[in-house]
Amino acid sequence: MRQPNILFDGLPLPFADGQTIMEAATAAGIFIPHLCHHPDFKPQGSCKLCTVKANGRHVSACTMPAKDGMEVENNSPDLNDKRRTMLQMLFVEGNHFCPSCEKSGNCMLQALAYELEMLTPHFPHFYPDRPVDASHPQVLLDFNRCILCELCVRASRDVDDKNVFALSGRGIRKHLIVNAESGRLADTSFSLGDKAAHVCPVGVIIEKGRGFALPIGRRRYDIQPIGMELERAARCRGSGEAI
């Protein structure tokens, strides 16, 4: 039987039954911008950075199942412009001061902003007041940078079986909360060994005392742009090289 294909930016791309557009692209070494998607977790579909056009309709690549013959548009000026606008929204929604952020250089939000050439947050800043939680001995929570991707929520619930994190509020007032009457991380069962301690794509869940261990300029996305990582990995896989 012929393997089913989607037509991805004009090129045929095979996929296995049950795969989403994102999974099919990732398997082929093609990068679709994303923030709330993580291969280890159930798709969430909330950041909308992965918005593609499938058969003319805008859909989230991370949740939309691939279908044989589906035409998918991904890397187009229009879609990238929409993605850039959403990044700008995320930047003004929180307080992102990269030069003083430990995550700088390892941050997916920032790396995507580089990838999509976002030069300015553009919109008026909301400058929300979000106090940090330094109560936990090992980990600092700086909510100023939270993009509400729920990766920590999913990790703590589905992997750690702890439910340390959840969301409350709605609309622009939606925010991350922790599982304690006091509202303090120290009063939850959270620990540094949790999966949830290591999934945040931005600089909210920060291990204390590590500081700027690796200097700025030598970090993950300083060395290689976010879109290239995947493509290089796929090329290496294809040619049997070590990555």
Partner: peptide, 21 residues
């Protein structure tokens, strides 16, 4: 709409507030 946005997805959560402003 800004008041009623559930806040799940980025464009509506932030966009409805930006527009109201």
């Amino acid at each position: 709409f800004a008041h009623e946005s559930c806040g799940f997805c980025t464009p509506c959560r932030v966009g409805t507030s930006l527009v109201a402003n």
